[in-house]
Every structure is written in structure tokens, then in C-alpha cells.
Amino acid sequence: MFRLSKEQLQALSLHLQDDFLKRTASHLLANFPAELAKHGLQSNQLEQLIQRGVNEAESFGVVHEHDVRLYIECMVVLHPRFAWAQDTPWFGEVLRREDLSGTEKMDMVHDQLVFGLYEDGLE
């Protein structure tokens, strides 16, 4: 049977982490140039922003790749500290809920962004 050693797995893990940073950075550069400019973010600062986004998201229990990517997109579209921003309190409240999984939280964030479903407050 084909087996991977611990060292090989570690190297693969580092490669995949780096790959995520690069993929997300190029996605942001390609699709959100106006938003990046608005926040005065240069391309060399992007990886730092993404790294911070990964850590913040994790603190809210948001860990899966596609959820984290949406979290980082919110940082670009709304505000780099949207979870603490005074003008968007709803997002912070959702992210701090303990009865929801990370994916459920980001589903609600998505629907708020796209449909404005929760404009009148949390259901």
C-alpha cells in the first residue's frame, strides 16, 4: 500500500496553506480591485490581510476553506474589521453565536450580503 511519511505530510500541509494564501490573493486582486483601492490595500499587504482573516475566522469557529474565503471577502467588501464595526453590528452578533456552526454562521452572513434578509435584525 502507498504510504506518506509524517515529514511528507508536513511539507504537503505547508504547501497547501501557502497555496490557499496565493489563490485567495489573486482572487481578490482579480475580482475586488475597487474595494481594495478603497481600503488602501496594496498587493504586498494582501497576504497579511488574508492571514489575519484566517485567524479571526478561526476565533469565530469558521474554519472550512470556503467559509474562510467568504469571511475574507466580507473584510474586503464591508470593512477589514467588519465583525467589530459599529455600522455593521449584525455580523458581529451572528459570528459570536454559540448555537451555530461556522458554516451556518457564514450561510447567514452570505444571505445577509446577497439578499439583505436580516436587515430588520436577527430572526
Partner: peptide, 14 residues
């Protein structure tokens, strides 16, 4: 997006 996204996490991809 795809209905069944990957369960990978950026911090622990494996």
C-alpha cells in the same frame, strides 16, 4: 458555488 464544498481548512489542510 458548488453545493458540496471541500471540507479542507486553510490552517490544517490535511
Amino acid at each position: 458555488e458548488n453545493e458540496t464544498p471541500s471540507q479542507r481548512t486553510p490552517k490544517s489542510p490535511i
